[in-house]
Write a protein that binds this DNA or RNA. Structure first.
Lengths: 201, 201
DNA sequence: AATCGAAGTAATCATTCAATGCCTTCCTTG
DNA sequence: CAAGGAAGGCATTGAATGATTACTTCGATT
């Protein structure tokens, strides 16, 4: 009389393990914080996004700050991994096609903008001491990963700078709102270049 | 028997005109919002910074959102003016020294980082519809001013991108915290270049 | 000096928010 | 099936926040 799905690898259950639930809430928090940043997002908003109660969110992570720090660290780590993955399969800093491959790594990050948005929110929330410390650490790690490409520090700097501009353009929803003729539309086209179709659906 | 300072152009008075007070509160709000952003700054924090009561701040500007919008618009306008001032005295886009003059305009903005910080806070607070609209407008205006330099759109884009990186580095207080040997210190030196002494007191 | 308008505050209110404690419900194991 | 432990909600609370209202005080003008 067990329900038919009772025999699959993970039997149906209304309760998840603490780790499973933790992961789901972490995902929900990524979306919520991406929208409104650290100060602008309530733990209740995260809870609603995750479909659990607000006190449970706090209980899992201890505090809103601890939750944000974990989400932020995850975001910067994910971004670093995207670049590391490209470099892992060989990279010639003088090769134009390899340069493009690295730029294309940004493309996959654009597919889920939440990582980029959370990163930016963390950077600007650096007035909170703990967030500032993690922001500097995260930026340091990404810089170091990109340095591993063999590019000069100046080249890496330029690459990161372009990324920061794209992040800002995404944060202000420029691709969605720019009208033809609007100067911002020109900047959008010029900044996103090849990736433009990915951000204008 | 008047107090000695009673004969200066503006006689001593404990009350200021509405416009004078408005300007002072606007300045205070610039500092407060630069620290903690839109959502993270209370109207009471602004009031304390300005030395007036919290209800008075709300009464002058109507709402916290209206106040932030005014501060943000003022910040982007100030930044645009700094660039416009350089371009106003002639600019040859092929001249390397003229390029450096434009970069140096950023130097004077670094002297009061609050403008840059408020701008970044506005960008990342674009989830609030009114702020997003003003953020896109502000970025559009700055882009247009820089386009007036005669540089190509790609050159302007690169210039703005470098600026965004610097803004992020300032937001995360990289110059203050980077230790020698830290990868972030290398990025800081490389990003600020000539202006490094200006940000490391 | 009396007055009137403008500058500014004190008191208050309704919300919102992060966090705590207690209780319930489910799954698992003996 | 009994029991214990873990998952998760409910009720609550105290502080913070944005905003409103009513009141007070200052200064210029007649």
């Amino acid at each position: 009389m067990n329900p038919p799905e009772a025999t699959v690898t993970r039997p149906s259950k209304s309760r998840l393990t603490a780790d499973e639930r933790r992961g789901l809430v972490l995902d929900a928090a990524m979306r919520a914080f991406a929208r409104s940043g650290y100060a602008g997002t309530s733990t209740d908003a995260v809870a609603r996004e995750a479909g659990v109660s607000q006190p449970y969110v706090v209980r899992i992570f201890g505090s809103k700050l601890d939750l944000f720090l974990e989400v932020f660290t995850r975001a910067t780590a994910r971004i670093g991994e995207a670049f590391a993955a490209v470099l892992a399969q060989g990279f010639d800093p003088t090769s134009e096609t390899d340069r493009e491959r690295l730029g294309a790594a940004y493309t996959e990050l654009l597919a889920d903008r939440d990582f980029l948005l959370v990163m930016m929110h963390g950077f600007t929330a650096s007035g909170v001491a703990e967030i500032g410390a993690e922001a500097r650490a995260g930026m340091g790690r990404i810089f170091e990963i990109l340095r591993g490409s063999g590019m000069t520090d100046e080249e890496v700097r330029d690459f990161i700078a372009q990324g920061m501009l794209l992040n800002v353009m995404i944060a202000m929803q420029a691709p969605e709102h720019a009208q033809a003729g609007d100067p911002l539309a020109a900047l959008t086209e010029c900044a996103f270049g090849e990736m433009l179709p990915l951000v204008t659906p």
